[in-house]
Design a protein around this nucleic acid. Structure first.
Lengths: 220, 220, 220, 220
DNA sequence: CATGAATGAGGTTTCATTCAT
DNA sequence: TATGAATGAAACCTCATTCAT
């Protein structure tokens, strides 16, 4: 049995060695290109970089979106995994949280496709890869909250939105002012500290002072 | 010279007047469309709404980007103007600052093209319209700082980046969770308060705890 | 007024001269190609024969189907018109009917796209061009029936189906046995003569002798 | 020879037996799919339903057309056989003929590929399967003719073309007006009756009244 | 000078056929 | 020998930009 198995699987798997290599090459190439250029890339560019023909690509991923989803799922998952590990290593819940942001922003904020699709978190909340990341944040939030290190009322959604928001900041400043975003992160994290006991708005009322004549956007 | 010119053009009244009207119609239509749909919009849609032909549009703006820049310049300028007025009306420097954010985010964050192109603030810092907005923020920053209402070390750039960053948050949550962003604004503004005396990073060193193995993004 | 009009229209129409010429060239090329090859043709072939670029074609006809419909409408209409004229010229109702079939089959049965789309007569009965043709047949049917020259119970639908059916016969024999179909037409028309008083089935019951074990098609 | 061969292959059992089984599986699957969807079907669908790989399929049938021909040959043959049997059972020559049409149209007219390729009867007259069907019709024709039940001059080709022609009628009406075609069959069969003594055209001259200006098709 | 028609490269997807395993 | 992955030429359609009128 133990002997037969390798052969048996070999028989079945023989043709697949190439396919698997190709699939991986495609996914890898796509991950590269999607990170660099976002989801608007030409599928041919992916095929070219993966060293495969269009047909091969479309055999593995019948629609461009399938490929994009696969890559995003993979990258989100990797991200979530490494974040989980880092959280486990952290000294205290607050350090876990700050490390998470630092590493997320230093690492994944350049991934155009990830950042592009992060916004779907609210519009289409169950994109599978994002869910995993949300779980990580959920836990970070709970731990810091339980330890009394987090401003009361802060939710996972708040932390997630902060992440996306800062991710955008990273992307737009990264070329010219490489770590300028760390200042913003610092500020935001301080705003999350528990010594701010002022209640957060419920997401329905305006913040700060209500403007009497809420300056409207250009009339167009 | 200064005398002859107006007369000369006045004599052939039609061209200049029409041209100006057309130019304005184009810019107005473009402002509308760019606010709604962002820079990816079809140029023909702009020409159609402006009631002019493609040729006219391209005579005034040889490249799509020229038109986009013009519109953004205008809209940034208008924004800066209204923000300046609002700042003058505010009771105190802190209220001026919070009002500015609230109104900016409630109003201009829906302007797709503005938000899309805000990122050029750092990549291409002299987009003229943005400079004006920056001046307004500069003043808000200075006033709040002088009144001791702002955390030490906060710069105009920080406030600008916060604006862009929150603008992104608005855009991605606006459809599903209309005012969720107010919570993030609250948090960030609290982080800007002067009771946070911890120094901000200089934009070169990592924030929080230095990660020993700064988890890198996917190797691509 | 009479003077102004030409100028006025000229002002508006000037640019269109080309467009109209192109549109006509496209339709003409499409008519050719569709007649020859049916609706499966490559759009580029049409553009090439029309001497225009793809963009021009798609400006006039945003979808391939729009172009196909336009051509079919035009060709069906022409057909219906000429058939109406021919019917008016015919000596008697029977001659009108036989002439119609003869001419239809000699002329339009080679038009692949027309024949392809004829089958939609029942599936999608209101394709506009076909309706006109149906009216012609309706009249032929009524006249012949009123003159007692047509077998009782024959309907427009019967005549239309006969036309499509024989059209198919024409297409498949045309290359090798050019006018073989005339024999079938002869036979069918004789079957339509009023001396056949046997009632036609109502389109629900089997014809001839009911097969005890109605030989089924291959079990697949 | 007859003895050695089976033994020889039996010794290396796998190749021949498998090959035959595969070939049959392919043909069967193809018959199914071709009947359902016509010749435009994707080859992979056939391989999938047959449970074989593309390579196997292409080993047996180097071109898609080879497979199509094989299937059509088989299906035509089966059809011819069952038709022959039915003809033998029929009470009289006329019943044999009408039964043949009724059954053919009720059964095989839904076989998309058969109907599609029936047209090759004249273009490529020696497709072997069709020849067999032709023989059946030949006999039906001869028997009915000999019994004086058929209009003089009617040929096997006429009957064959009628079959194809009505088959087309079946296909295009089957979905919406399931048995409408029986009326057309009735009419055509009546036109074949011997009381129509009018000579049939020889397939070269126009039928009915000669149109003075034989309305030509669109000038293309 | 205004018009809007024309251009054609470029994007995604399908499928008959070949070829490495 | 069987497998099914790989190939790549089309096919349809869009849109920034140019050019004849």
């Amino acid at each position: 049995m133990a002997l037969a198995d390798p052969q048996d699987t070999a028989r079945r798997r023989a043709p697949r060695v190439d396919a698997i290599r190709n699939r991986e090459a495609i996914v890898e190439a796509a991950a590269e290109v999607l990170a660099e250029q976002g989801t608007a890339v030409d599928v041919r560019e992916i095929a070219r970089r993966g060293g495969v023909g269009m047909g091969t690509l479309y055999r593995h991923f019948p629609k461009k979106e399938d490929l994009v989803r696969t890559v995003l799922h993979q990258d989100f998952t990797r991200w979530a995994d490494s974040a989980r590990r880092a959280a486990a290593d952290a000294e205290d819940p607050w350090a876990a949280l700050t490390d998470f942001y630092e590493q997320a922003l230093a690492g994944y904020a350049r991934h155009r496709a990830i950042m592009e699709n992060f916004e779907l978190t609210w519009a289409e909340p169950d994109l599978d890869g994002i869910r995993q990341l949300r779980l990580v944040i959920d836990e970070l939030c709970a731990r810091a909250g339980a330890a009394g290190l987090l401003r009361p009322g802060v939710t996972t959604d708040d932390l997630l939105l902060l992440l996306v928001s800062l991710g955008h900041a990273v992307r737009i400043t990264d070329d010219c002012r490489p770590r300028m975003w760390t200042r913003l992160l610092h500020i935001s994290l301080d705003g999350l500290r528990p010594d701010h006991r002022g209640p957060l708005p419920d997401g329905t009322a305006p913040v700060g002072r209500t403007p009497e004549a809420p300056e409207s956007p250009p009339s167009h």
